[in-house]
């Protein structure tokens, strides 16, 4: 239930619309339950119904103001080559970030992480949010996004790498490496 609501909030960005969307999805799922042969597929199936209800709702209520398009949710993959980021990242940064003694573990709290996520291109942002925040499996996220599971997998890799890069930049902008003695690390 929480995951379903969380995804609905992600799609609608509006509490009332999210509740309506969940209710619509549950109603549709209940009506079609006898067509679901394998009950182990129930969760991804309900997420697909939720997505379809969201899209059809958007088509019929195009005047509703929150989002005029859902391209930002499903399709915007941004640009840039993530492979170069992997090469650029230094061991020093990884050591620094992952060391529990470092202040960064306390400094980069939730708000800053969410701010860094907001900066990601739409498709990566949504995929990372669905999997890492809302707790969906890759299969479930694929149903919500309407893409193959392999696409979710590649978006997760690229999105998380971009997120790591953004957090590193955020930390450098805040001067955290200087305070922890990890200055001089090149990104």
């Amino acid at each position: 239930m929480d995951a379903l609501y969380s995804v609905a909030m992600r799609l609608t960005r509006n509490r009332a619309d999210a509740e309506d969307l969940v209710a619509e999805a549950v109603t549709r799922a209940w009506a079609a339950l006898d067509r679901l042969g394998n009950l182990t597929l129930f969760r991804p199936w309900v997420f697909r119904i939720l997505r379809n209800a969201f899209i059809s709702g958007r088509r019929s209520k195009a005047a509703r103001p929150v989002e005029s398009s859902y391209d930002h949710v499903f399709n915007d993959e941004g640009s840039g080559d993530v492979a170069s980021l992997l090469v650029e990242e230094s061991d020093a940064f990884l050591d620094w970030w992952s060391n529990p003694e470092r202040r960064v573990s306390n400094d980069l709290l939730g708000e800053q992480i969410m701010a860094a996520i907001d900066e990601l291109p739409g498709a990566f942002r949504t995929t990372v949010l669905l999997v890492n925040v809302d707790g969906l499996t890759y299969d479930e996220a694929a149903e919500v996004l309407g893409v193959p599971c392999g696409t979710v997998r590649s978006r997760m890799k690229r999105g998380r790498t971009l997120l790591q890069k953004a957090l590193w930049q955020q930390a450098r902008d805040a001067g955290i490496p200087d305070r922890t003695g990890a200055s001089g690390v090149e990104s």
């Binding site: 239930m1 379903l4 969380s6 509490r15 969940v22 996520i117 925040v133 809302d134």
Partner: peptide
């Protein structure tokens, strides 16, 4: 951190 930062409970 991600899980703690953004998860939402159904009202």
């Amino acid at each position: 951190r991600l899980r703690a930062a953004g998860s939402q409970q159904a009202p």
